[in-house]
Amino acid sequence: MLIAILTISAMAGIFGLILGYAAIRFKVEGNPIVDQIDSLLPQTQCGQCTYPGCRPYAEAIANGEAPINQCPPGGQSTVVLLADLLDVEVLELNAEHGDHNDVPLVAFIREDTCIGCTLCIQACPVDAILGSAKHMHTIIIDECTGCELCLPPCPVDCIDLIPIKQTIEDWKWSLPGETLASLESSSEQEGAITYGH
C-alpha cells in the first residue's frame, strides 16, 4: 500500500514538473484563428457588428467576446461557415444588427443634390468615394462594398443604395429545378415565345 502511494505520487510529481516546464517552454504566441475568421468575413467594413471593421470583429469572435451572428452582409451563410470553423452551434443571424441583402448593393450619389461636403468621403472605410470640397462626389462602383456608412453623415440625403446591375457576364446558371426570376421579363418582348414551366 505504501509502495503504491509512493510510486503514484512520485510519478505525479515528475509529470507535474514536466508539465510545468512545458507550459512555460511551449507557450503559443499570437492567434492564427483570427486570420481564419477574418478571411470568412465579407470585408465590407460596415461596422454593423458594432466593431470598427471586420478584423476587430474577428478578434472579438476569437476571444469569445462576440457571438458569430452579428454580420448582416455575410448573412446566414457566413454564420454557418464560422460555426463550422469554430465548431460551435449555428446561430441565426441576429436581426438587431441588420438584415441580409441577397442582392449586392452599391452606393450611388445623386449628382444634382450633392453639395460637396466631403463628409461621406471621411466616412467611407474603403476610400471608394471620389471628390473634393464644394465639388460633386462620386462613388467608385468597383470599390464600393455597400456598407451604408456614407448614408448617415450626408446632410442632404443624396446617397442611395442601389442593387448592382446584373450583366450577362456575371449571370449565373441555376441548378436544375431552381427557378430564378429573370431580370427582364421575356414575355414582355414582342413576339416572345414561352417555354419552360
Binding site: 505525479a12 507535474g16 507550459a23
Partner: peptide, 12 residues
C-alpha cells in the same frame, strides 16, 4: 488549480 496540471488532476 493550476492550468498546466489541470487535466492530470481531473483525471486523477
Amino acid at each position: 488549480i493550476r492550468s498546466e496540471v489541470r487535466l492530470p488532476v481531473f483525471v486523477l
